[in-house]
Design a protein around this nucleic acid. Structure first.
Lengths: 199, 199
DNA sequence: CCTTTTCCGTACCGATCGGTGCATAAAGTG
DNA sequence: CACTTTATGCACCGATCGGTACGGAAAAGG
């Protein structure tokens, strides 16, 4: 049963799928979904159109894969933030992480999940909206737990608080895409955290 | 000297320039700069390609005109907010105005100046970034005056505070584009205002 | 060797992109 | 009336869009 283990029949790939996907992330991150042409993508990935379609299906599926990759890579701060011990630390890690991720030197400014969501047409828009809502719901669940643990005032609405934090993070992404510096955005995050919890 | 007052020589326009521009605003607002094709625009405006180019120059200039129009129309809440008597009222009017503008029934969700800024390529991107920076600077000047008037704590940094408010407004636009309701976003604005000034 | 299976490079598809050339229509001016 | 000026309608441009057909190259199994 292990015969097809390490000897896939036929000619092997001439490129590394992961590396190619990483390059695709950069292109989508910089130019958005519609802004990224097949030529841009194949050039950056170092493969031909044919290879791209054989390996990833089509542009939309490639974008979905790139979004997953982005979530596990540059946007991994979000999942990490949820594991902080207190609600305040969750918010701090989330906002500071978003500042760092959207202003990382040598990387495109802004957030792939925000740029993309607005630029994409009907096809992939649903995936982006679902992506962001998933993040908001994760935050809400975490804050709900914090209320139960007495970590937040009992009358706190976890949903509103989660949406508030996510809204600021989205705004940070827009600001970063518009040229705001890391220091400027750090001040923004500080202002949010200075009055936590927002009574 | 008044001979060319009401009798422009040559065949007169067969359409109203203002109405056409208003239609263009809707299209850009819904689909972004790159997402709006010439066919979409001319169809909505009820004119032909030739007329569009004769009246507005090209797509980029049309977008610039549409952005002006948007500023004076749906986004006029921003200029109104600056005239509120206290810094807190300025922030409240600004945030509540952005909530209303980005979730107006019968209009596209989100903000033209935010959707566009992210979707547009190199050509018009500068205009969008300048547009948003102009807004931030106006807020900063207003908050600076508020500090002088004792309306805000003396140690307040007007620039950071302005960027904070603008960041939340940008986030609200992203949230609205992603399907957040007016009530949900009102709660977000309330959370910001409940802890004002952010000590 | 051969066949089979898969991948790669080229050259191409129809559709759409933003933008124009040109003839005609509708106004003012003589 | 002719003449100029401007606007419109139609057809069309080259470029690019996402996507593909096809033939040859490179691997495994016989």
């Amino acid at each position: 049963m292990e015969t097809h283990r390490k000897a896939p029949i036929g000619r092997p790939r001439g490129f590394d799928t992961d590396e190619a996907l990483e390059s695709a992330v950069r292109v989508f991150w910089e130019q958005g979904y519609e802004g990224a042409g097949l030529t841009d993508l194949t050039t950056a990935m170092g493969i031909t159109r044919t290879s791209l379609y054989a390996a990833f299906g089509n542009k939309e599926e490639l974008f979905r894969r790139a979004l997953e990759r982005y979530t596990e890579g540059p946007a991994a701060y979000a999942a990490r933030a949820l594991r902080e011990p207190t609600a305040r630390q969750v918010a701090a890690a989330f906002l500071n992480g978003s500042v760092r991720a959207t202003t990382r030197p040598g990387c495109p400014t802004g957030c792939l999940g925000v740029q993309g969501a607005l630029a994409v047409g009907e096809p992939g828009r649903g995936a982006l909206i679902a992506w962001r809502n998933r993040g908001t719901l994760s935050l809400r669940d975490r804050f709900r737990r914090a209320v139960e643990e007495g970590d937040l005032p009992a009358d706190t609405d976890p949903g509103s608080l989660a949406r508030y934090v996510m809204t600021v993070a989205n705004g940070i992404a827009v600001q970063a895409a518009g040229g705001a510096t890391r220091d400027e955005l750090r001040h923004v995050a500080d202002l949010v955290l200075r009055s936590w919890p927002p009574a």
